[in-house]
């Protein structure tokens, strides 16, 4: 069963150490493993929509997901990118409110689903899980706060450079050790930086002109990571 690609078991899940269930005791884990389901989402599929009530916890088994919020004017803003092992929508589940964000798949992704009742029951019974959820919450809060500081203080150029470095860290490099292993549309990239698509493209071409990066279709090739880091102004 552990090798069943359709519904991988939690006990042998290699991604578990990254998620909320990392230090759950065996009994709880067995229960979750038996009740959860795993689905394949194709590129572009939406896992959940903003404004709906959560029915359970989503946890990414493999692939990449974007978590975004739609503004009143209908523009999307990407709050974060999530990779294998990360839980999705656990905040709404804990607070018992509607989803504040939507999640959509960036590439073919396997997502496990744990029913709400089971998750909440486990949460009430296991201090390991609550501790872990707490860790995730404080981490999220820290991220959200530094995002505000970034938006208020950094120029678009700095933010673009930072985003490229973030993508590099998050997705890793292809075999040539230069190309970032991701293909995001320019619009997605702009939404991630928090700027207009036009402004993003302008910054990208400026970087390209200065031979800091190279662009091949949707792929970004980092030519000079040091200068990029300098532009991004990263201190921490």
């Amino acid at each position: 069963m552990s090798h069943n690609p359709k519904n991988p078991s939690c006990q042998t899940c290699g991604m578990r150490h990254k998620g909320v269930f990392s230090n759950l005791d065996r009994d709880n884990l067995t229960e979750i493993s038996s009740q959860k389901s795993c689905n394949l989402y194709r590129k572009g599929d939406v896992i959940f929509h903003e404004g709906n009530y959560p029915l359970g916890l989503f946890s990414i088994y493999s692939g990449k997901v974007k978590v975004f919020k739609t503004s009143e004017t209908g523009k999307d803003h990407i709050l974060r990118l999530a990779g294998a092992g990360e839980p999705l929508g656990y905040r709404s589940l804990v607070s018992g409110e509607k989803y504040e964000v939507s999640a959509a798949v960036l590439e073919d992704t396997r997502v496990c689903f744990i029913p709400k009742a089971l998750f909440l029951n486990t949460l009430q019974g296991s201090s390991n899980l609550t501790g872990r959820v707490m860790e995730f919450l404080t981490k999220d809060l820290k991220l959200a706060e530094s995002k505000i500081a970034d938006l208020a203080q950094k120029t678009v150029k700095e933010r673009v450079a930072e985003t490229i470095l973030m993508l590099k860290q998050f997705y890793g490099m292809e075999n040539d050790d230069k190309t970032i292993n991701v293909s995001l549309s320019r619009e997605d990239l702009a939404n991630l930086v928090g700027t207009a698509t036009e402004t993003l493209i302008r910054s990208l071409s400026e970087f390209k002109k200065n031979e800091i990066i190279d662009l091949k279709g949707k792929k970004i090739i980092i030519l000079n990571a040091k200068i990029l880091e300098k532009i991004a102004n990263i201190f921490d």
Partner: peptide, 21 residues
């Protein structure tokens, strides 16, 4: 406490969105 944290995160995210839009 967790719920309070959730709300705090929500408010912070909302703020960063308002900065953009």
């Amino acid at each position: 406490i967790m719920k309070a944290l959730c709300q705090e995160i929500e408010a912070t995210q909302q703020k960063s969105l308002s900065l953009i839009y």
